[in-house]
Design a protein around this nucleic acid. Structure first.
Length: 606
DNA sequence: GAGTTTGAAACT
DNA sequence: CAGTTTCAAACTC
């Protein structure tokens, strides 16, 4: 948070003051970041056609233009603003976030304000949001990155070498809030990593305390992690709407993730996801880091207790939090104050480094940041082998390699992810409580149920494809494994048959469930790793927050959960939608960052 | 909290 | 691709 007096947004002087000041001008001349003149906007703000918020954004190449076309149009007047109801889960739709970013803006007296404006800046009674544009062009990147400062850097292929530490790349502040998430390049924009630099950076611009980066509204495609922190921060600052308290409980974690299927890892999905602070009572004028500083431990506790484990607390000492060793980095979230890492570069201020490193890792392994645990009906059938024999359709992407733990401890990623071992595992003496590598076929009942579940999934898939359009609230109940929904083929799946492994990947977005699984049994508010599915149907997300119910039926071994029959008038509780939502129509298979360009230039729809 | 164990990630 | 090293989480005491 901007504890410095001049950053205190309590009573912001007119923006023009800053703009006219020599300091401001000087800054402008130095930085690619350009303040945008404030614009009065009307209450129609919500209806503005915003690019989706980068809450769970990820490298565009991941979702690229793919989802863009489906992005909900906020300018659609017919669409009612997202309802803010109690018990909202972690899922937050874009316009909701916008509401958070742009606090109640009274309509102009003259009503002359166009109904639709670019969300450049908002200057309202309730709060002023200044948006700094961070056009990260190659030049900007050039400016942001330059030689030097590689001391102690991990063998990071020189990525860090080029980054000047502490140089704010972009100021992302919205009102009192500062985003801590990574922003990935806008879809269609080449050079994702560079563009991503737009994201947050420590505020170094005087008077920017209440600025909000355009990137906040920028169209960023959801991706794997790296935005969870942002979400938390965002929620944090949405005090005015009770949004925080209502939604935070079910904030996605990471794994990640959204995607962060693993209880402790993979969380990015949305989810992966890593809120920094979930305490709604804390001051709103905090930046992500500052939020944590208030009472990091407390916040962590709260988050953990609430099942919001998106935030990882890493303890890296040598990796600089720029390797997959780092749970935060792996989960796609920035390290935050509670982390005990040393020499951490996984911070917004080093976003460029983070993104570049991430890019490199993905270039080596495009699925490096993909959920480790994949779940979906398709995968069940496609994985073949034992996958379809095991109780749960969820399996670890690569399988474990345990030698001594017997897959009975969290050393085992399968176990940690709450899934059984599969033929992909090279483990020895597997005793995985969620399903042994070699015994899955022994569970006759289970397979029977699996079969049943699969059929059910298919039914739901058919039914829901129609229902979804009609009634966004319709969703298959989220089950620990949530396989049913996943049966619904993703657009890209329909278009082309991917290798089973890739399909897995795509469906793995559901890995979220594992977190749920872990917490779902005992917690009413399981944490979801939100995935970029908002793109597809954000509005449904807003109501799906109380997702906990969808997961309650999780069995210790992640076995099939009874799903409500897809009856004609079947109307799952809003809470159940989450599970389905998380299905992550959101994330197409993960194209390699290196291929992003080709992808992005490709067809916008998958 | 320190030390050990473990297995993934990274490196060769 | 296999072997080795590095790393940090998980675990134990």
């Amino acid at each position: 948070m901007d504890s410095t007096p001049h950053n205190k947004p309590t009573k912001l002087p007119p923006l023009s003051k800053f703009e006219d000041s020599p300091v401001f001008n000087f800054i402008n001349s130095l930085s690619p970041i350009k303040p945008v003149k404030s614009i009065h906007i009307t209450q129609t703000f919500n209806s503005i056609s915003f690019p989706s918020l980068p809450v769970f954004t990820s490298p565009p190449h991941h979702f690229g233009p793919l989802n863009s076309p489906k992005r909900p149009s906020f300018s659609n007047p017919s669409r009612s603003p997202p309802a803010v109801s109690k018990n909202k889960g972690a899922v937050i739709i874009m316009d909701q976030l916008l509401e958070i970013f742009v606090p109640q803006i009274p309509p102009p007296a003259d009503g002359s304000t166009p109904a639709i404006q670019p969300p450049e800046t908002v200057n309202a009674d309730a709060g002023e949001v200044r948006i700094f544009r961070c056009p990260i062009s190659s030049e900007a990147m050039e400016e942001a990155i330059h030689g030097g400062e590689d001391e102690g850097l991990p063998q990071n292929d020189g990525v860090l070498d080029r980054i000047e530490e502490n140089k704010p790349l972009c100021n992302l502040q919205s009102g009192n809030m500062r985003r801590r998430c990574l922003d990935f390049e806008m879809a269609g924009k080449p050079n994702t990593a560079a563009a991503a630099v737009e994201a947050t950076a420590d505020s170094s611009i005087p008077g920017s305390s209440s600025s909000s980066s355009s990137s906040s509204f920028r169209r960023t495609l959801p991706g794997i992690g790296l935005h969870l922190n942002a979400l938390a921060a965002t929620l944090k600052h949405s005090d005015s709407e009770n949004l925080c308290s209502e939604r935070q409980p079910s904030l996605p974690s990471s794994s990640a993730p959204i995607f962060a299927p693993n209880s402790t890892r993979d969380q990015p999905l949305l989810v992966s996801s890593t809120p920094e602070s979930e305490n709604p009572q804390e001051p709103a004028n905090l930046t992500g880091e500052e939020l944590n500083q208030i009472n990091p431990k407390k916040n962590w506790k709260l988050m953990e207790n609430a099942g919001i484990g998106a935030c990882k607390r890493c303890n890296c000492k040598k990796s600089k939090c720029l390797k997959l060793y780092c749970e935060c980095f792996a989960a796609g979230v920035y390290c935050i104050e509670p982390c005990s890492c040393q020499g951490c570069f996984n911070k917004p201020i080093h976003e460029a480094v983070v993104l570049e490193t991430r890019r490199q890792i993905e270039s080596r392994n495009p699925l490096a940041f993909a959920p480790k645990v994949i779940v979906n009906c398709d995968s069940v059938s496609e994985l073949g082998d034992d996958s379809n024999k095991t109780p749960a359709s969820a399996r670890h992407k690569r399988g474990c390699n345990c030698k001594k733990s017997g897959c009975l401890k969290k050393y085992c990623e399968c176990y940690q992810g709450g899934v059984g071992c599969s033929s992909n595992c090279r483990c020895e003496g597997c005793k995985n409580a969620f399903g042994r590598k070699d015994e899955s076929s022994l569970i006759g009942i289970e397979t029977e149920q699996e079969e049943e579940a699969r059929e059910h999934c298919q039914k739901n898939a058919e039914v829901q494809s129609d229902e979804d359009n009609q009634n966004p609230s319709n969703a298959a109940p989220s089950t620990p494994l949530g396989p049913c929904r996943s049966l619904i083929p993703f657009p890209f799946q329909l278009k082309r048959r991917l290798p089973s492994f890739l399909n897995d990947e795509s469906s793995s977005r559901l890995s979220v469930r594992f977190k749920l699984e872990k917490h779902g049994i005992t917690q009413t508010e399981p944490k979801f790793e939100k995935t970029p599915c908002e793109d597809v149907m954000p509005e449904t997300l807003c109501n799906s927050c109380p997702s906990s119910t969808g997961v309650k039926s999780v069995s210790p071994n992640s076995k099939r959960v009874t799903l409500p029959p897809p009856q004609g008038n079947f109307r799952p509780l809003p809470s159940t939608r989450i599970g389905r939502k998380l299905i992550l129509q959101s994330i197409p298979s993960f194209p390699s960052l290196t291929n992003q360009n080709s992808r992005m230039n490709g067809p916008s729809e998958l």
